[in-house]
Design a protein around this nucleic acid. Structure first.
Lengths: 186, 186
DNA sequence: GTGATTTACTTGTTCGGACAGGTAATGGCG
DNA sequence: CGCCATTACCTGTCCGAACAAGTAAATCAC
């Protein structure tokens, strides 16, 4: 959360705060009642992102940069466009992210011999020291997400998340194609 | 996703695509294998955020601004700091968000009579036209998230999400008070 | 081979989010 | 009353994300 995580100090608006139902449930009546699942996704996403950001910052990485490095470590040098596809990111975002990783000394840029448009990104030797740290962070993040769930419960959780993802993906496909029928058949 | 959502286009670097297991499962070996739940959360969050952004953009709002408006509509005029607490946002972010909503004509700023430091934010009459749209969008987003789940399954999903949130919240509480080893890329 | 299209990447802009200051106004305490 | 920590808000900066637009190279069509 932000720095201000206190409660009480009620303002003078014209309505009672609705008896904040449960334990820690932040008082968000409007959004919560309009779409409980949606709002839960939103809160989980924010917490997850925040924790990941905190952990990564300690090793000198920003959110998202760890994905780039993980792919480079695992698959070796990649063209920028391949990284974009792997992470399903944006070309513009990747350009700037790579630039910052380069400034930080974690990657190097090399022109592609086969294709003069392309650039090959490769992890530096110095970045190898990060690898274990990042893997530890991902394990920590996974632990923070799953808590003390049993493997069965984790599988169930994963199932639930996949179901949500599939559902959202279906909607995204419908929503984005306002005019064309295209679900990207080229 | 980004604009580039195509597949195939065989690349020529050393990239064995690893038999993309399922249907839509984007080929993200490294991150997925390091933390499946974590990675699922990440993907769900991104999809959810993207769809919400698309829907909101059609009515002239940006991500997060709808939360401000929903609270103002439901609770009436609020001080800026109250909005920050309600949404659990950041004071700086709120300042700019309010400024943009003001430029868009959706809110008005009025000095607080009791406290000369504070500012009262109130929804404009013009913003009332948005209210139904935003509520429709939230319903649509909820539908997109839950898909064709039965109420029981939705409750189960909600339970799972809450469990993740609690787990993350516990970690966040532990993490924020931990050590502080600087190291910054910036 | 020439021209049109596609691809790879860059840059500019805007947004939310987060952090680091900075300025008033407020309120408590001696 | 004066001192001082807190509060409410603002500004600057940096980052990821998304969109628009542009450049250069590769590829396709003819």
């Amino acid at each position: 959360m932000s720095r201000e995580t206190n409660r009480d100090t009620q303002g003078q608006p014209s309505r009672p705060p609705r008896a904040t139902s449960a334990i820690s449930s932040v008082p968000v009546p409007a959004a919560a009642h309009a779409g409980p699942v949606s709002h839960a996704i939103f809160r989980v996403a924010r917490l997850h992102r925040m924790i990941a950001g905190q952990l990564l910052r300690r090793v000198g990485l920003h959110l998202g940069q760890e994905l780039v490095m993980m792919h480079l470590w695992e698959l070796g040098p990649q063209r920028q466009t391949d990284l974009v596809r792997l992470i399903d990111s944006d070309a513009a975002t990747m350009t700037r992210s790579i630039k910052r990783l380069e400034n930080a000394g974690f990657v190097r840029r090399r022109p592609c011999p086969d294709d003069k448009r392309a650039v090959i990104i490769e992890p530096t030797a110095a970045s190898q020291a990060l690898r274990q740290e990042v893997e530890r962070i991902w394990a920590e993040l996974e632990g923070a997400s799953t808590g003390d769930l049993t493997p069965d419960q984790q599988a169930e959780t994963l199932n639930t998340l996949r179901r949500i993802e599939d559902s959202l993906a279906r909607t995204a496909a419908r929503t984005s194609s306002a005019s064309a029928a295209g679900t990207g058949v080229r």
